[in-house]
Design a protein around this nucleic acid. Sequence first.
DNA 1: CAACCCCTATCTAACAATCGGTAGGCAAGA
DNA 2: TCTTGCCTACCGATTGTTAGATAGGGGTTG
Lengths: 187, 187
Amino acid sequence: MSANAKEAILAAGRLSAQAHGYGGLNMRELAGEVGIKAASIYHHFASKAELAAAIAERYWQDTKAWLDEVESRHQDPKASLREYPDTFRNSLVNGNRLCLGSFLGAEYDDLPEPVRRQVQTFADVNVAWLQDRLIEAEMVEKENAEDRARAIFAAIAGAQLVARSRSDITIFDAMITSYQRAGLLPQ
Amino acid sequence: MSANAKEAILAAGRLSAQAHGYGGLNMRELAGEVGIKAASIYHHFASKAELAAAIAERYWQDTKAWLDEVESRHQDPKASLREYPDTFRNSLVNGNRLCLGSFLGAEYDDLPEPVRRQVQTFADVNVAWLQDRLIEAEMVEKENAEDRARAIFAAIAGAQLVARSRSDITIFDAMITSYQRAGLLPQ
DNA sequence: CAACCCCTATCTAACAATCGGTAGGCAAGA
DNA sequence: TCTTGCCTACCGATTGTTAGATAGGGGTTG
């Protein structure tokens, strides 16, 4: 295992947290998925709180990398915006999982401080990226861009939440289509 | 206490579940808020699962009653739609709490079956009411009304989720305004 | 080259706290 | 006297976390 163990813990922990949240994240179960014992996790992470913070930090870093890759792949900002819901969709396809930011957002009151900071950063990363694309696409006036970006972020996260509790991806797609028809997202 | 105890348990349980979810709902703590001992709860509810199901059932019943009252207060369906986000807003004002449907929706995988049913009913109640108002207001074609209704429900739940993790009601209001400007909600 | 040591990564075993839930008793009103 | 509503006391399971041991690899030293 060695240095790979830490990465394996982060990867499995992310999947577990997306399915069960911070409260449902279980050290023994997580260790079992990685193939080690629970005590061994403490060799890599000082506590459950710090583990969760590391998971959340890695999560927004991966998200940011993916968003930047999407942006660089299109010259049309509207094309980037059309692709934006795909991460959320993929989480549903991949084990009916939730966006980590949404789950931890729900549990926010019971979250340790270091985890809270990473959750906020995740939201900031998404909103900033959306804001830039909205301005490039000239879809809103500059002074409304941030609010509109946050509204889009919230709407898609909400669609994922609702679709998940039906375990039905088709209603996620239907909601995205509705957002497009209504004018919240570009068609 | 007597017959009032059951009602008090339901009321306190709802508030606790809106703040900490099903997993965070604690029998001892809940009993303490009501002024009884944890064991006494089992005189009124057979298990935590049945208690949570009763809380969720009461929740959608109260929601439905409020929605019907809103509808009867306005003759203009758009006026009803404008008032719709207020329940979600009030939960934030009242202790930064989440819609119970959203919290339980996040925890859906770990929910006992009877609770799941009530969560779905809550979503159905909201979507059905929104669908009726949208049709009355002639805001969408009939075949798209349900999808649009669910999209609005999801968007507002998402806005509440995002606003909660900032403990900031003003950004909730800003997102609702954005939805109106974009055309998702009537202005 | 061999003996030594130490660091890394993991283990077993256990602790203390907390959880949902149960058994059985007690008091009061019908 | 029987039912209702609550209690005390406890059980077993699970949780995050810690202490201490062990195995192996790499570097230093004789």
